[in-house]
């Protein structure tokens, strides 16, 4: 019963992430600037990582591949953080830098994936040894994005811009909560983490729908 609930939440999260990719690709579609590619890529990887979890828990996927969702999720957060990192910098000066960064991230992810597939035992040992640090790293990435978006909101306070920082804060707390689950297998920590993550993703979805599908009112600049 409990596993079924978790699998349902993972599937719903994955579906929301894949829907979000459709919206997140729009800034890239308009500007054709590679720095905004991190947004759709981040949510696509996030969705993929959530989609894999049910297979791992229902034993449909080999247990040696238990590291796969965490690896993909970490890269998803790095892609999102990179987008925010580069978004404020002038596109003319940083074009090469962001192209190199994204290329390195793709190469890194592919390499780790191939190493994991070809040497599952080595990856499994590394996974158990390092997953705590990886989870802390995920919290750091999400906190960076949350602080960044919150700063943008404070700079130009607008009721519409507070929701995205809130969404990222919920995702960060969700990852933080997962740390406790990892340390003491607390059911409350896992339930809290799943609930907060779902709430965060729903906020992203609502903001996206409201922007693109609500009757459009022009704001005079």
């Amino acid at each position: 019963m409990y596993d079924e609930a978790r699998i349902t939440v993972e599937i719903v999260s994955a579906v929301i992430c894949f829907i979000l990719v459709r919206f997140m690709i729009k800034p890239y579609g308009l500007t054709r600037e590679g720095r905004y590619l991190g947004l759709p890529l981040g949510f696509a990887f996030l969705g993929t990582s959530y989609a894999i979890v049910p297979f791992v828990y229902s034993k449909l996927l080999a247990q040696e591949l238990i590291w796969l969702p965490l690896l993909i999720r970490t890269f998803a957060f790095v892609f999102l953080a990179t987008t925010y990192f580069f978004s404020k910098r002038s596109s003319k000066n940083t074009r090469i830098l962001w192209n190199i960064t994204y290329s390195l991230l793709i190469v890194g992810l592919t390499t780790l994936f191939l190493v994991g597939i070809t040497h599952p035992q080595f990856t499994l040992q590394t996974y158990f040894g390092s997953q705590l640090y990886i989870r802390i790293f995920n919290v750091v990435c999400l906190s960076y994005i949350a602080i960044y978006t919150l700063k943008e909101h404070v700079k130009e306070p607008d009721p519409t811009t507070i929701w995205i920082p809130l969404g990222f804060i919920l995702l960060a707390i969700s990852q933080y909560s997962l740390l406790f689950w990892y340390l003491d297998s607390s059911l409350a920590a896992l339930t809290g983490s799943l609930t907060l993550r779902l709430a965060g993703l729903i906020i992203f979805l609502l903001v996206s729908y409201q922007t693109f599908y609500s009757p459009w009112k022009r704001t005079d600049k």
Partner: peptide, 12 residues
């Protein structure tokens, strides 16, 4: 719409 979305996402 896309500019508004970027603003709401906290992107510059």
């Amino acid at each position: 719409k896309v500019l508004e979305f970027m603003k709401r996402m906290g992107l510059t």
